[in-house]
């Protein structure tokens, strides 16, 4: 058979990966998620070397390369560092529009991302001005919490 005899389009065989993982959250993030779930509080871990308060908490400071030990409560208010508003659907991801922002919670050194809710996103330019870097937000905690990052969201103050 030569190429010219092939009249149909090349075949496609479909395949899927369905692989289940059980990710270990680790003791540090477990403490964070339990405090978030049971007390509605956000806490970071302090680096004994640079004194940075890492939120989300990390068991180590990658810059100083030492273990962190002390827990410090942060927020619930904070300052927007970066944001976006998603307007187009992505495969397998939530229905748009939705907004996410990185926020440095008061008392924290690093910023933590989460959804920004309770905000009219219908006009991108208007919504973007409200989410501008430097604007203030507060963490709002869900009534029913499960010990996950989505147990809280940010709301403009």
């Amino acid at each position: 058979m030569n190429q010219k005899e092939q009249t149909e389009a090349p075949l496609i065989h479909s395949g899927e990966w369905k692989i289940h993982y059980d990710y270990a959250v680790g003791e540090t993030a477990t403490q964070f998620f339990l405090r978030l779930r049971d007390q509605g509080k956000i806490a970071g871990k302090k680096c004994p070397s640079c004194q940075g308060v890492l939120v989300p908490p990390r068991a180590f400071c990658e810059r100083c390369f030492v273990q962190t030990e002390e827990w410090v409560d942060v927020g619930p208010e904070g300052t927007i560092e970066a944001f976006t508003i998603v307007y187009e659907p992505f495969d397998g991801l939530p229905e748009p529009p939705y907004a996410v922002a990185y926020v440095t919670l008061d008392g924290a050194t690093t910023a933590m991302a989460n959804f920004v809710r309770a905000l009219d996103l219908s006009d991108p330019e208007v919504a973007a001005r409200q989410l501008a870097v430097g604007n203030r937000v507060e963490a709002v905690f869900a009534d029913a919490r499960e010990g996950a990052v989505t147990d809280f969201y940010y709301r403009l103050m």
Partner: peptide
């Protein structure tokens, strides 16, 4: 899977 994947990044 803990901090950013659930936020649809």
């Amino acid at each position: 899977p803990f901090w950013l994947r659930p936020l649809a990044f």
